[in-house]
Every structure is written in structure tokens, then in C-alpha cells.
């Protein structure tokens, strides 16, 4: 029995080592194309290895699309980009049945795969499409399958949706419904680059050669490492911290801070806690650990919860930033759960 356990332990350690090497390689490759945006790249990689979807929010021209494209290039995955517009139809995403005529003149309806049948789907300016079209992604995001004409088509794993949206230009847009927002693992804010980063961007993009990422991992490797990430153990006190943090975003909760009580209409769903722990596991492995720490949960709290909190009228009127409320909740829960000796 002892030898078997030793082997399992050895395998786990090797997998963890491989995981870390892959992440380092991916960072390097993405870093060849993308300047700065360390947090965004980090969150994107975490979502990729946790098998979650990411909503990237930022003004146009910050490199959101480039980031996703570079990532798919480095991973040797099928990449599809859909530019969402008001006239985009659901069939344009999922695909549709088309009349197919064979060489002998025979005709039949065949399913024409839409762009959703890729490993990495970039839904650019997702809030420009109508709710009907947006909802075409619902099933794909949650179930990793789509139903067309009574037939369910399974999507190839890994299936990741990277959606972008512009936070400023709201005219003629359709804000994503809560159900769809909840399906994103992370909502990542893409900030404007600094002066130094801008310099570097100019140097890289205005020269004769445009840098490209090299493939560092296959689809199978990604799937295998994502499975390893799920094995990382979570201690009770860490899980309790994550759950109390989730509850603290609910205005009726005992742990809810004053801001949450005043400005929040509804708090994060259980998917929020899943996001906290899953992303925590990936962070732990990336950091060379075999356990999820409270720090991991804290680091994942903003991208995991900010899109799951619904502000009430007062909150919207006051233009309250959900990030502030989450920070307040973290502080409160930390104080309530801190364990230390009196020295």
C-alpha cells in the first residue's frame, strides 16, 4: 500500500511541476506579444486552466482581442472570433442546417458548424448583440453543447469563451443578463497601459516584424493539467472563508458590510464560490503549492465576484463600484475569521 501511495504522491508532484512549467512558458509566449497587462494575462491563464469563461471589459484598442488570439496560438487550439452586432443572429454563432447538394445531385440538410465550435471563442463586443443572440451562448457556456433543430451537438473540450465589452459606449447596447454574466468565471478589467508600456507597444507593433507566440502546449496537455488543478485540496478554514465571503455580498447576511447592506440588491450566486475555489486551486499550483490559501481566494475575489453582484437603484445612482463593496466584505470576513495567538 505504501508504495502505491508514494507513486501517487510522486505523480502529483510531477504533475504540479509540469503545470508550473507550462504556465511559465505560456506567460513567456504571451509576453512576447502582449505588453504589460500582467493581471489580465494571469486571470486569463487561470480561467483557461480552471475551464472557465472570461468577460474582458475595457475600452477599444487595449489589446483584448490580441491577447485571446495570442493565447490560442500558444496553445494550439482552434480559435474563432465573432464580432457581435445588433443584427447578429443566433444561427450565426451556433451554426445552422443548410441544404447540401451532393455530386450525384442528391440533396440533404446538413449542419453547418458555427464559430462556437472552436476551443477558444472570442465574442467581441458581446453587449452589442440582442439578448436573443447573446442567449445563444448560454447553453454552450454552461453545458458545453448546443441544440440545433432538435439535435444536441457537443463542443470540443476545452471550450472557452472570451467576451469583450466596452464600458463607456453604452448607446445601442444590450447589457448582459444576470444569468449570462453568472456563467463567466471572471470579469477582468483591462486598464489603460502606462507610459512605459505604451513605449514598448509602439516599438513592437510599428516595426517591420510583428512578434508571434509559439505553441507550447497541446489541447490534451491543457485538459490534463486542468484535471490536476481540480485535485488540489482545500482546507476547511479556507473553504469557510470563501463561503463567508460569498455570503457577505448578500445584503441580508450577518457578515455583510454596511456598503453591501445599503447598495446591493442581490449577492453572488454559488457559482461565485465555485469560481473562488477553482481559481484558487489554479493559483496555488501556479505558486508551487499543493493547497489553496486564503490569499488565493482573496486574490480571486474581485474578478470572480464583481459581475455577480447586482446593485440596487441607490447603488446605481451613486455609481458604486462593486469592487469597493467586495474589498469591504473581504476585510470584514478576514477580521471575523482571523485566528492568531496573543503574542
Amino acid at each position: 500500500m505504501g508504495e502505491h501511495e508514494d507513486l501517487a504522491q510522486r505523480r502529483a508532484e510531477q504533475e504540479a511541476g509540469r503545470f508550473r512549467r507550462l504556465v511559465d512558458d505560456l506567460r513567456t509566449q504571451v509576453g512576447r506579444v502582449i505588453v504589460g497587462m500582467e493581471d489580465v494575462v494571469e486571470s486569463t491563464l487561470i480561467a483557461l486552466l480552471a475551464g472557465g469563461h472570461v468577460l474582458l471589459e475595457g475600452v477599444p484598442g487595449l489589446g483584448k482581442t490580441l491577447l485571446v488570439r495570442t493565447l490560442s496560438e500558444a496553445l494550439d487550439l482552434k480559435f474563432a472570433r465573432v464580432q457581435f452586432t445588433p443584427d447578429l443572429m443566433p444561427a450565426d454563432i451556433t451554426g445552422t442546417m443548410v441544404l447540401w447538394e451532393g455530386p450525384g445531385g442528391e440533396r440533404e440538410f446538413r449542419f453547418q458548424h458555427g464559430p462556437v465550435f472552436a476551443n477558444v471563442v472570442l465574442a467581441d463586443e458581446i453587449n452589442r448583440a440582442t439578448p436573443k443572440t447573446q442567449s445563444a451562448l448560454l447553453e454552450a457556456m454552461q453545458e458545453h453543447s448546443i441544440s440545433v433543430a432538435g439535435t444536441t451537438h457537443h463542443l470540443e473540450e476545452p471550450f472557452l469563451v472570451f467576451a469583450t465589452q466596452n464600458p463607456i459606449e453604452m448607446e445601442g447596447t444590450y447589457p448582459l443578463p444576470e444569468a449570462q454574466l453568472d456563467r463567466f468565471l471572471f470579469k477582468v478589467r483591462v486598464e489603460f497601459p502606462t507610459l512605459a508600456e505604451l513605449h514598448e507597444i509602439m516599438n513592437r507593433t510599428t516595426g517591420a516584424e510583428t512578434p508571434h507566440a509559439e505553441k507550447v502546449a497541446s489541447r490534451d496537455e491543457i485538459l490534463s493539467l486542468a484535471a490536476v488543478a481540480r485535485e488540489v485540496p482545500v482546507a476547511d478554514h479556507v473553504q469557510r472563508f470563501a463561503l463567508r465571503l460569498l455570503l457577505a455580498t448578500h445584503p441580508e447576511s450577518e457578515d455583510a458590510p454596511e456598503g453591501v447592506r445599503q447598495f446591493v440588491r442581490y449577492g453572488a450566486s454559488p457559482r461565485g464560490a465555485q469560481a473562488l475555489l477553482l481559481s484558487g486551486k489554479v493559483r496555488a499550483l501556479m505558486d508551487g503549492r499543493f493547497n489553496v490559501a486564503i490569499d488565493d481566494v482573496r486574490a480571486s475575489a474581485l474578478p470572480s465576484l464583481r459581475h455577480r453582484i447586482g446593485l440596487n437603484f441607490e447603488g446605481q445612482a451613486e455609481e458604486i463600484d462593486p469592487d469597493d463593496l467586495i474589498r469591504e466584505a473581504i476585510e470584514r470576513v478576514e477580521n471575523a475569521t482571523r485566528q492568531d495567538v496573543p503574542v
Binding site: 504522491q9 502529483a12 485540496p233 476547511d236 503549492r289
Partner: peptide, 15 residues
């Protein structure tokens, strides 16, 4: 916490 587990798996042992 894991040391109280009866049969820890590979990742738990590694931890």
C-alpha cells in the same frame, strides 16, 4: 487538517 484524513490521495500527501 489533511493529516487527520484516513487515506490521503497523492496531492494531499504531497501537501
Amino acid at each position: 487538517e489533511l493529516s487527520r484524513t484516513l487515506y490521503p490521495d497523492g496531492m494531499e500527501r504531497a501537501q
